[in-house]
Amino acid sequence: MLRKFAAPKIFYPLAGKLMPWFFWTFAVLGAVGLYWGLMLAPVDAVQGQAYRIMYVHVPSAWMSMMIYTSMAVSAAAVLVWRTKVAEYWLLCSPGLGASFTFITLVTGSLWGKPMWGTYWVWDARLTSELVLLFIYFAILAMKGAIPDRRKAARVMAMITVVGFVNIPIIKFSVDWWTTLHQGDSIFRKGGPSIAPSMLVPLFMMALSFSSYYFWLVLKHIRTLIERSAA
């Protein structure tokens, strides 16, 4: 079963069928989420308008970790089974992952200036997210340095597996150590500490960003399959 879907011949048309669904989910939820987050959601009692940065910051941060996790799963498949589609997934993901990590760092910094009073501090959360950006860069560098795609994927898989230890560190850094970065507002005991009227657009943006990732990764994989067939 699993192997069947992992064959490029099966995967190619399947990806083609899924892409429009992901595109429209991204476009519609993104448009509604943007309007809701910027225009309809109320002002925050403490932070004023600046809290609206969270509608791009938080989904990007989730994406930076989710993309890496999907890469780690692909990496295991690459190392154990040499699955071709997993190789493609690994080749096509780190660019998007690095992009979302970059967005997370810059938007967080723009929020930090008016809220904390500083653009940057070396606390555990901020530092581990920066480390994630460097890990993505290392994986991308391997893709650029090794011309043979299958060999490149295998080396990228090894770095991905080693770098995966950073993901739980990012996630739990705010619980394990004292940080300037606040704790989790959503996945916490007793439910989210965000008013429902502010939470709905956040989930919309998160779903929109995930669909965007799946849309583009499928598009990119299809390009690779086309080229290896040509």
């Binding site: 943007l34 910027l38 932070q47 004023g48 308008q49 600046a50 609206r52 940065i53 791009v56 910051h57 990007s60 967005i103 810059v106 938007t107 723009l110 929020w111 200036k113 008016p114």
Partner: peptide
């Protein structure tokens, strides 16, 4: 003011 930091975040994204 605060609003100044919001639009660059969205533009960058």
């Amino acid at each position: 003011g605060f609003w100044m930091y919001v639009w660059p975040s969205y533009a960058l994204t």
